[in-house]
Amino acid sequence: MDSGKLHISVPVSRNRVISKLPKWYTPESCLQFKEDFHGKVKGACQNRHTRSGGLNISKVVVVGDLYVGKTCLINRFCKDVFDRDYKATIGVDFEIERFEIAGVPHTLQIWDTAGQEKFKCIASAYYRGAQVIVTVFDLADIKTLEHTRQWLQDALKENENTSPNIFLVGTKRDLLSPAECERTENDAIRIASEMQAEYWSVSAKTGQNVQEFFFRMAALAFEESMLRELENSSLSTARIGEANVIRIDENAEAPQSKRTAEPGLGCC
């Protein structure tokens, strides 16, 4: 498909430029310890101008209980505003953020889902095809942390064939004393490692860690998508001219194993 279609070439605003891989929040719960982008990705970025440009969009789905502050978190980052009044999200909301990462344009499509039970049917229809899942809880309301497991499970069910990047985010950090915060963070980090998620504490009210978090997420999503694209393009060149590599037989790989490098019907 013409993946460039959604990428309207509006110049990326100056405060959305990421040149180095941003750092994690806490090493106890972190998806990537590298200091910089994957070598292959950096290489690809440098001779980007020779490429037609691949899938430069990542879909981000934000889930979590009602009132935990999903919408506020997104609005703080995208619009730099904070609203004290609670306005429940109806169904889903949607924001687009354009970045320039390592010199390459990349777009985050952020789907803000509603936490209210009655919107679950509608919101869950948007989980599929996510490259990033952000599960959000309220640091000041411990039961919302427990619920993140269920939220993640629901979101992952719609993404069985891919393995999205997962983030666990605690909000409203400004409401807690440092001691309280540390206690809750310890619990959260434990759950995050069970989930294989990266953990972040933020406050939409003060803006603390909000930009850092989004930059980190954007950069990791970008790297993923570049690696995937590189993998795909090497697959498709392998296919051209070497027709006999492709073989369909009863023992062929099941389609679930998406990351196996073996070409075949299962690879798409």
Partner: peptide, 25 residues
């Protein structure tokens, strides 16, 4: 809609692979 279109190209890939299979085997 662009997600939907992506599925169309997956069908196209499947067709190509089926044809290649027919040709080779």
């Amino acid at each position: 809609l662009s997600d939907l279109v992506a599925v169309s190209s997956k069908f196209k890939d499947l067709l190509q692979e089926g044809l290649t299979e027919l040709n080779t085997t």
